[in-house]
């Protein structure tokens, strides 16, 4: 399935890019340490095209969730722009910001924390409809039931509370809530990570079906690269607050250009004993440095197996430039040379 095929024919605007992140920063000041800050997102450029699924991977703490919250305007940016459907949403406030949420939704990581324990499922699903005054009250009730049915739950569950459901069922409720207002773009932050394998497969299939049915665009964040590869058209890799490589899902696996991508991919076990006997993971030296004080030059250099440091790698920050396949960019002075 190619992104081009999936793009809705009815798209009026010629711009194939739905969302652009332009040089976005998010620094969380550490109180009491004059000027020090956690540089959670530290200069990210990213494009998400209409109808595609962009996968976002990286180790924990590298800034994926923070980036998701910048894109959905749940957090204000420290600097930079997020342009959604031609509009810079970082400057929006109040009512105008809420209007954007009609088109942009989010599925959260923790199926137990993301539903208000004191609201019935009916109220949870009706809340977005109420907020945007969609239809009459009767219509809304019906739509709530349709939504439940759509995600594979009994439509008569409206009066139940979240604690009466299993993790997988709760995640479906979270998905139904995101779909309630008919968004065109959904951010899934570790939406399947907390689920058991068989339930995870149910949710992954559901997300794919919904995308085909409603021409949705997804930003799919996960640390499980296998799941990301399965769901995504393109994949972006983050390291310490920056995107270090972006490419099509097959290109990135077959021809990774950044050494971090290569190491990350090589470390994932495959459910096949024959392959596993041959696989040789690339061990990275040391641990992820602190995002308070990232290394100079290329921030991967202390762990990079091919770094020239001291030298260009520890002195100059490599820009994100085309390398390898068409549509592939990587931020490395020696991209592909390993």
């Amino acid at each position: 399935m190619q992104a081009a095929e999936k793009a809705p024919a009815t798209a009026v605007k010629a711009d194939p890019v739905l969302l652009r992140v332009k040089n976005a920063y998010k620094h969380f000041p550490i109180s009491g340490f004059g000027g020090l800050a956690v540089r959670a997102v530290d200069g990210v450029d990213l494009e998400i095209r209409r109808g595609e699924t962009l996968g976002l991977v990286g180790e924990s703490g590298c800034g994926k969730s923070t980036l998701a919250r910048l894109i959905t305007a749940l957090l204000p940016v420290t600097a930079g722009k997020v342009v959604f459907d031609g509009q810079d949403i970082t400057t929006l406030k109040g009512r105008r910001l809420r209007r954007i949420r009609r088109k942009m939704q989010m599925i959260f990581q923790d199926p137990f924390a993301s539903l208000d324990p004191r609201m019935t499922v009916g109220d949870i699903l009706q809340e977005p409809l109420d907020n945007f005054s969609i239809g009459s009250v009767r219509d809304r009730r019906r739509r709530v039931q349709e939504l439940l049915r759509l995600v594979g739950l009994n439509p008569n569950f409206t009066n139940r509370y979240p604690h009466e459901f299993s993790g997988g069922q709760r995640q479906r409720i979270g998905i139904a809530r995101a779909l309630a207002v008919n968004p065109s773009f959904i951010v899934c932050d570790e939406a399947v990570s907390a689920l058991d394998v068989s339930i995870q497969a149910q949710i992954i299939n559901l997300l794919q079906d919904l995308q085909n049915e409603f021409q949705l665009t997804y930003l799919f964040i996960a640390h499980d690269l296998a799941v990301v590869r399965h769901l995504s058209d393109r994949i972006a890799v983050m390291y310490l607050g920056k995107v270090v490589e972006t490419a099509g899902r097959n290109d990135i696996y077959e021809r990774p250009q950044h050494p971090y991508t290569k190491a990350l991919l090589s470390s994932i076990p495959v459910p096949d004993p024959a392959v596993e006997r041959e696989r040789a993971p690339i061990a990275l030296k040391g641990e992820i440095p602190s995002p308070v004080n990232p290394p100079s030059g290329c921030r991967f250099h202390p762990r990079c197996p091919i770094a020239r440091a001291p030298g260009v790698c520890s002195e100059q920050e490599p820009p994100l430039e085309p390398h390898g396949a068409r549509d592939q960019v990587a931020a490395c002075h020696f991209a592909g040379q390993f």
Binding site: S198, I199, Q200, Q202, A226
Partner: peptide
């Protein structure tokens, strides 16, 4: 169980086998 997990070394095949119910 074996078919419900995607593999990182394979290009996307249609769907995962999901075990319905709980």
């Amino acid at each position: 169980l074996l078919r419900s997990v995607p593999r990182v070394d394979e290009a996307r095949k249609d769907r995962l086998v999901s075990i319905h119910g709980l």
